[in-house]
Design a protein around this nucleic acid. Structure first.
Lengths: 344, 344
DNA sequence: ATTTAGCACTCGGGTATAAAGAGTGCTAAC
DNA sequence: GTTAGCACTCTTTATACCCGAGTGCTAAAT
């Protein structure tokens, strides 16, 4: 449906626009060394490409600019697979060498480095802990009517929550409870914890502890943690560098969205595995109209547990970013899988 | 040094400029009902005020704009003490009624509500936990060479850190250690924890546990927590509403700063008690040139533990914000002091 | 049947000019 | 001491103008 020459011209136009942010005209295009057609020929092809919806004009006599459909086609069919510089690879690997600070810090670093490497905004959805298994449970009484529930997972992650103690509960009873809980629940994945608390321990507790129900209920409530991981965003202000965001209203739209965690979750919520590219209005979010989002999930074993994403202008360096995000997501998958399996 | 009339005029000019963001001219000023001088008189006074450095012109024949010195004088001498609307007071009190979610959530709410109430940007430096006392210590081994250190304070705050276990340590030894640690360190303020760990427990451990030193060292390292509380920022994008920040470069400067935690810490690091107003270049930070910052510390008992702050344009509603910040900081002090004391 | 050269036309951006509006400073009168 | 009057300044807005980059179309060249 598109001739080779049309493909070639479309590609050059988009490549050029991505670099320059300027509408590209037939004259300048013809001047490039690897282009051997006359401006007039190019104009004709451009007119056809526009008619088919791949290009647009900003006004009647301006050069051409890729349309959303144009970008889509470019991403789906024309992308030259890029490769990473050695320095980029080492930068990425270095994130995970220092393991001592725990997963959170590492994920934070991923966000920072991604945004620095791309000079776009990075979003990293930290791993969810549903699959991680309970290593240890504690109930630490704070005063007469409050206690802290602590859950340690086999990955070294610690969840804690305050909860109310019913009146008249005894320290000895709490100790007994903790023993029973640990005995029965250690090794369970967090996702099943809440469901199994009653099932596994109620019977036993009934026998040994009076008034156990109220405590157990509070503890079970506290155990119902967040389903998703934490969000990290790097390079929030990088959008200011983009010439098409000289307009303060546009910047504001994007900035406002970035402050609203729920919107960002919606954007990067893991859906399918692999790399996804959402261009402009392909994103549900209104504020993303002039932006594109490239997401990749990373996994532990075969289970996707989080997402890394790059948010940039529609005029994004798709090739570079896709290569980078792909590489990094695999790297994260490897590291996390190894980390997790050694602790099984 | 300033006549009453000059004070009066200065005040009206600043009030007006804060409202309108427009340079104010003699003609318009004279039209106000409570002004009974002719434009010419006002012009003379304005010229004097300018000569003294309280006012500035944006160009030779523009109206006057307050200088930094003008704002300073206004804040120090001319501020009409404002009062809060009932709705504002209830909004503030409501932050602390729901205590179940712990201090972090409450502080987060403070930031959000502050920014909504003022439509400026709010910064809240969460309480530091130095004074909070150790309630319970745990060491949970994760695998052969890693463990999590957990510190629970009497306020229900939980600190946790991953650390390396030396080789060949036994589970039984760890249990003994935890017992000794709890026995000796419970009740100590966090700030002294690290220092006292050796002092209080080394002797005892030497007697019962072999190879205790390596573990103790790691644990002591992990206990050295952050000195300051967490930062919360609300309404980051509110600056976009200010007409003097139509300029994308100015916005960027401020936004960049807000992404840099260390800069913000520097800005709101608690210094003296009470309310402080820093206008424009009175702030060390370059990016604050066109902004003002109003800070107030809040305390537990007599000890300041954190800061709340409002960051806005130099043309800020000083009166309103000061009243609000003052009220809120006292409210927080009361709530936290009560909370803390019941748990002593 | 393509491809290309040539040309008329369009539009945005930059510059010059003019007029309007808001404001000042100064002088002289009140 | 206060104020009216006036000349002057500077910004803003509007208008006209030209230039450059680009297009679309037609006709010639390949």
């Amino acid at each position: 449906m598109l001739t080779d020459r049309q493909l070639f011209i479309l590609q050059i136009i988009i490549d050029d626009f991505i670099r320059s942010a300027q509408p590209v005209g037939s004259r300048n295009l013809a001047k490039k060394e690897d282009v051997s057609y006359s401006p007039a020929t190019i104009r004709n092809e451009m007119a056809d490409l526009e008619e088919m919806g791949f290009l647009e004009k900003t006004h009647t006599s301006s050069g051409r600019v890729p349309s959303e459909k144009g970008y889509r086609y470019y991403v789906d069919h024309l992308l030259a697979p890029g490769s990473l510089a050695r320095s980029e690879k080492t930068a990425i690997h270095s994130i995970f060498t220092d393991r001592q600070h725990g997963i959170e810090k590492a994920v934070q670093n991923v966000a920072t480095i991604l945004s620095e490497l791309t000079s776009y905004t990075s979003i990293v959805l930290g791993p969810k802990f549903n699959d991680h298994k309970v290593k240890n449970l504690q109930i630490i009484p704070i005063d007469d009517d409050t206690a802290v529930a602590i859950i340690v997972t086999d990955t070294g992650h610690v969840e804690n929550r305050l909860f109310s103690l019913p009146e008249g509960i005894e320290a000895a009873d709490i100790e007994k409870m903790v023993n029973i809980l640990n005995d029965r629940l250690t090794g369970l994945p967090l996702s099943e914890l809440q469901r199994k608390i009653y099932q596994e321990t109620a019977e036993l507790m009934k026998r040994h502890i009076q008034n156990y129900e109220a405590v157990l209920k509070m503890f079970a409530d506290a155990a119902g943690g967040p389903e998703l991981g934490k969000l990290f965003i790097g390079g929030k202000t990088n959008i200011f560098n983009q010439p098409e965001f000289r307009d303060i209203e546009k910047v504001r739209l994007v900035m406002d969205m970035m402050e609203k965690e729920s919107d960002i979750y919606e954007l990067v919520r893991p859906t399918e595995a692999g790399i996804q590219v959402k261009i402009g209005t392909e994103n549900a979010e209104q504020a993303m109209e002039d932006c594109s989002l490239i997401t990749a999930s990373y996994s532990v074993g075969d289970e996707p547990v989080g997402t890394i994403a790059i948010l940039g202008p529609k005029r994004m360096e798709y090739s570079r970013v896709i290569t980078l995000v792909d590489f990094l997501s695999h790297d994260m998958t490897n590291v996390l899988t190894r980390l997790y399996n050694t602790r099984l």
